[in-house]
């Protein structure tokens, strides 16, 4: 593993106000995400793990603190810079695929390429190749509603990596899929990471977390612990599960 930090968070805070009450979702988090890592953020429901992901990826504003992407402070970006950052540097995979419902799978995947201003020929080639690698080739002209949830999610991953981003953020990418489809999605992410793709994934599922080489536990808006693992191998899956489980319960 290279120990270069791709994302650095300093003293991150996020507070939501509801009338006179204030809810502190993230409290003074300092964190580094390293290049080439498959980082998983785990935590209970409402612990602040998703909020942390949005803040690290520039999708949400901060109440306080700083976020750096390769030493560039992204929380002070103007909208135009933020737009370019989202197009070129990051890819995002949501729990639901969030494909544009009346664009075909091909169009959804190709869209970031068009936004980036890549030549139409290149976009087409890349999108078709991604569809093939995601095993959804032949579905180019289908609309999201016409394919399975797993195929939708694989299309969403293809869209996320269309512009070869430096890092992929995935928020419960298997959360709305059945087991079989979920495994397929995790396999794709794992293969991408094996080729050097940095990934940050939020999950509460231990089986999904097993794919990571680094797990950050969030509790009540704070980093509650961190677990470093060897790179994922299917052979040692059960041991990893046990290790993570005991780490959680041991801490709990």
């Amino acid at each position: 593993m290279l120990n270069t930090a791709i994302i650095q968070a300093k003293n991150l805070c996020k507070t939501y106000s509801t009338g006179s009450e204030q809810f502190h979702a993230i409290r003074n988090i300092d964190l580094d995400i390293f290049q080439g890592d498959f980082t998983v953020i785990m935590g209970d429901s409402g612990s602040g793990k998703s909020t942390l992901l949005y803040m690290l990826s520039g999708l949400d504003s901060l109440t306080a603190g700083e976020v750096y992407f390769r030493q560039q402070r992204i929380d002070q970006f103007f909208e135009k810079e933020l737009g370019a950052f989202r197009t070129q540097k990051i890819g995002y995979v949501y729990q639901s695929s969030n494909l544009v419902p009346d664009l075909t799978l091909f169009e959804n995947i190709a869209l970031p390429g068009y936004v980036a201003g890549t030549s139409k020929r290149e976009v087409k080639q890349k999108a078709l190749s991604l569809m093939e690698s995601m095993n959804i080739d032949g579905q180019q002209k289908r609309l999201p509603a016409e394919v399975s949830g797993g195929q939708q999610q694989r299309a969403a991953i293809a869209r996320a990596i269309m512009n070869t981003p430096d890092i992929i953020f995935a928020d419960e990418p298997t959360g709305s899929l059945n087991y079989e489809q979920g495994v397929k999605v995790l396999d794709i992410l794992t293969q991408m990471n094996a080729k050097g793709q940095s990934i940050v994934m939020v999950t509460h599922d231990i089986k999904s977390a097993c794919r990571a080489n680094r797990i950050i536990f969030i509790r009540d808006g704070k980093v509650g612990g961190m677990l470093e693992l060897d790179p994922y191998s299917p052979d040692g899956l059960q041991d990893r599960e046990s290790l993570i489980f005991s780490y959680i319960t041991g801490r709990g």
Partner: peptide
């Protein structure tokens, strides 16, 4: 929602 998607892939 589509506008949110466009924003997430970098459109301002």
């Amino acid at each position: 929602k589509p506008y949110g998607i466009y924003k997430s892939i970098g459109l301002t």
